[in-house]
Design a protein around this nucleic acid. Structure first.
Lengths: 139, 139
DNA sequence: ACGTCTCTTGACGTTAACGTAAAGCCATTC
DNA sequence: GAATGGCTTTACGTTAACGTCAAGAGACGT
């Protein structure tokens, strides 16, 4: 009764707001990442859903998988006093950070490597052939 | 006749040399990236196959897809005089490099972002709750 | 002849995160 | 009351690069 006029969004409004497809929102609901209300058969996304979706998208940017995100999100929903869980969250995040840094370092290596190849002309994958083909390729 | 005793490797020797599985080599052959000889039904990988595999693996490190790698490899196999193709190779590689740099930049952003979150305690995905939960999580 | 080893060819399974129909309900609006 | 428009569920399709059996052939040693 207090929230009879809770401000909610239709699926389309959600999509427009967050630039996702309806399929995506339904998928997230199926995976229990979102819990929109229903009016008849229609979904109504609450403020809470919006907050969650924002976090989901941020999690994705971080490279978390949906299942990991769901777990993290669920922790916050549980009793606030389960601090042990929070520190676990912390560790998961640090692991992810380490992963990302490893990835970036590999990428950096590969980039440097590829740059080096490009410097030598068109022999990108190391094709041997003759030197003049490379020269000509450079025009 | 001249290469009756061409030095070749069995599939197992190839696998050990390049740290790949037999499945992988057969897969590459199916995708026309490798062309091992046959003796009866057995595969014999020639020097050429070894060179190609080396380039394939390098290509993968660069983030090329197998199909792209196949195309690049094929160019080198065609007439040496098709210089136009070579410069196309060059462009493909430059595009890939640009992709990789974009990826890395995004990753850098995400990393910085995540680091920032970690600085603020356990609220990794931005969970709001109370400040003390985060404090306690920091111990 | 028998067992063992290495290799072969199918051919289906895996994973993530949705895409893409197909078919139907409900509320307007003409 | 028919056509629309928006939404629904169900369910199969997609993609890459292999993994993972299953069943069988060939060679080799005893």
């Amino acid at each position: 009764m207090t929230d009879e006029f809770e401000d909610t969004l239709s699926i389309r409004e959600m999509c427009d707001t967050f630039e996702v497809t309806p399929r995506t929102l339904r998928f997230y609901e199926a995976k229990e990442l979102l819990f929109p209300h229903r009016v008849g058969t229609r979904r109504l996304f609450t403020r809470r859903d919006r907050a969650r979706l924002k976090l989901i998208l941020r999690g994705k940017r971080f490279g978390f998988q949906l299942e990991e995100i769901r777990q993290l999100l669920d922790m916050y929903d549980r009793d606030d006093s389960q601090i042990a869980q929070l520190s676990k969250t912390y560790e998961i995040a640090k692991d992810r950070l380490a992963d990302m840094e490893r990835q970036r370092d590999e990428l950096d290596e590969a980039i440097a490597d590829l740059r080096e190849q490009l410097k030598w002309g068109a022999r990108v994958l190391g094709a041997q052939k003759t030197a003049h083909t490379a020269d000509q390729a450079r025009k």
